[in-house]
Design a protein around this nucleic acid. Structure first.
Lengths: 185, 185
DNA sequence: GAGATACCGGACACCACTGTCCGGTAGTAC
DNA sequence: GTACTACCGGACAGTGGTGTCCGGTATCTC
């Protein structure tokens, strides 16, 4: 029995399919990495390849949709008035541990408008939290936003490339190093 | 004219071919990255695919051969009695700028014995130079070899993923940050 | 000079992924 | 109930890269 003709929900399954694809992509990218076959995303979503490419013409646009709300949760964090730069580092580290794919997306598609936009949003957060830290005297005035972004990028790379069981240790060491580097003079 | 039958140097061209392959691979990996088609390496070396796979059964063994003497030059550096940890950072940065491939090799083949060996050699250097810096009072006693290795890895990642015209700036910032982080308390 | 040997080069078969295309089906209008 | 529309799913052809296999050639031996 060669797989009896699947139910076809006809028109107006659009939004459902889109959501299913994003959810499936989040799982698959998390497990396999950003270069996972898009095939397997469609399969996991229970959706045809056609629908996948109809909603997301290429891998990057799918990935951007997936990670849009990752960045969103960072923005929520920064919106809380008592959050600090250290919190941002920890949140980024947590996301890098959960899925390497966001880092890969941003680092290898710096030319893509969608991915670029995600990175820009993070920069905004960094600059807000940096200003907050400096005005409260926790962060040295010599520190610039680019320093913070470099630190975030370095941390994310290191974690995403490491063996899973080394990640906690890396996070600890990196936290210590950046604290020293960003301390007031 | 379908490319007249190439000259065939017969037996005993072995070492020549091997050297040509390594040189070609260094160029190609430098230009295209570690994932360059092995095909193109053979072509650049003016050698058949057969010979390539005869000398190097897989991509990693070729890359290890290429980068073996990159590490060698780091070892020479460390052997000079007046060299410091900062020199090592700069040398690593220079290599990352010259070719992203060494970083990719070490970071995505941590299981491969050949690649692992390269990484181990670097760790040895870091620990020597760290001890030297600490005994001369330039480096804080709280710093461990793993911290240095993390710093090296982070620097290398950041540089290898960045746009070429951002690399100098990254190097500068990273140097400043690590200097602060490793300073004596 | 002839035969044997060892090694070379590149054609080719294989594989995995991408992205398109079209027959089919649920929903909608009348 | 019927005809129409919009969208779905998956088959399939195209593409790019890997690694093997074998006919061919230079060197060596006698």
């Amino acid at each position: 029995m060669p797989a009896e003709p699947k139910a076809n929900r006809g028109p107006s399954a659009g939004p459902d399919n889109r959501r299913a694809l994003i959810a499936a992509a989040r799982e698959v990218f998390g497990e396999v990495g950003l270069s996972a076959p898009l095939n397997s995303v469609a399969k996991r979503a229970g959706v045809g390849q056609g629908s996948l490419y109809r909603h997301f013409p290429d891998r990057v646009s799918l990935a951007v949709a997936v990670f849009d709300d990752n960045i969103g949760s960072l923005e929520e964090l920064a919106a809380r008035p008592d959050s600090t730069l250290n919190d941002l580092f920890d949140a980024v580290a947590a996301q890098a541990i959960a899925s390497t794919a966001l880092i890969d997306l941003i680092s290898s598609n710096r030319r893509d408008p969608g991915a670029e936009h995600l990175a820009t949003r993070v920069t905004g957060l960094a600059s807000i939290l940096l200003a907050r830290g400096q005005s409260s005297g926790l962060i040295g005035s010599q520190v610039e936003t680019d320093d913070v972004m470099l630190a975030i990028a370095m941390l994310a790379f290191a974690i995403s490339k490491a063996d899973p069981d080394e990640r906690a240790d890396i996070q600890t060491r990196a936290r210590r190093m950046f604290r020293a580097a960003f301390a007031p003079v």
